[in-house]
Amino acid sequence: MPQPWQPAATLAVLAARARLLARIRAFFADAGVMEVETPIASRAAATDPALESLATVCPGLADSRLWLHTSPELAMKRLLAAGAGPIYQICKVFRGGERGRRHHPEFTLLEWYRPGWDYRRLLVEVAALVRVALDRPELAAEVLTYRAVFLDRLGLDPMGADIETLRDAARGSGIAGAADLALDVDGWLDLLLTHRIESGLGRGRLTFLCDYPPSQAALARIRAGDPPVAERFELYLEGMELANGFTELTDAAEQRRRFRCDLQRRADAGLACPPIDEALLAALEAGLPPSAGVALGVDRLLMIATGSLHIDQVLAFPVERA
């Protein structure tokens, strides 16, 4: 059956999207943060084993294979290294294999960077931005650590827990089919977080979950301590994850090590292994100022602004009718 030609979102929701984007741009204009654009299609791609980049071919280029970005992070850090100062970008990003009520393979990301800030300072600005974007100045915010939430909700210390402990916790908490899953430590933590914790986060307030296990650092700086933690936060509102931010890793050697480690895990899992972003590593070697950065899902923010339960309700043309 052919898909309808009409948009999936109502015109009222599309108008709400336009207003949301205008508020975001006004917020950053007031804050003195510069809007930038970086390439959607690049020669390098994200190495994160949990992300699947889309690839395309540009006829006429000597090296014709290009990857669609999963976030503008790598290119924006090169701008930071070049001395751009505080910058933001609103752009479409692409992630293969992600489709559901809260996922669409092409979505709108708001990403911004604050040189000289750390993640704790940045999350305060994230809360301010969300209040302005939703026009809800009274919206409260709380900051919880990853460890405290696991201890509080599951009576489980996620730091240093072994596979057996986590698997037993998942089975014991009644996650159907947990017994049949083969996961690593982070996979079990992700299962517990998404199935037993996430839906209760951010009810009537902004909940920032922070200080992740170092194994889930992605591109965040790791703070030494007992236990060491990744200086990373995620924002939840009404049980939905809205944003992910870091104190950025600025160490080129450590970044190269993580890229290689990611690629090894990708190869082990039989996933495509795109080229490492050597330009980013060169920029880190030249010197990335200490910075904090965050990416926020604009479509999900619009879902909350409009009370939509499915991402298709806020998209003009979801992929099935694109």
Partner: peptide, 15 residues
């Protein structure tokens, strides 16, 4: 019913 579930970074699941 099929629901795709994925944390911000990390392992995705189908519930």
């Amino acid at each position: 019913e099929n629901e795709f579930v994925k944390p911000g970074k990390g392992q995705a699941f189908n519930r």
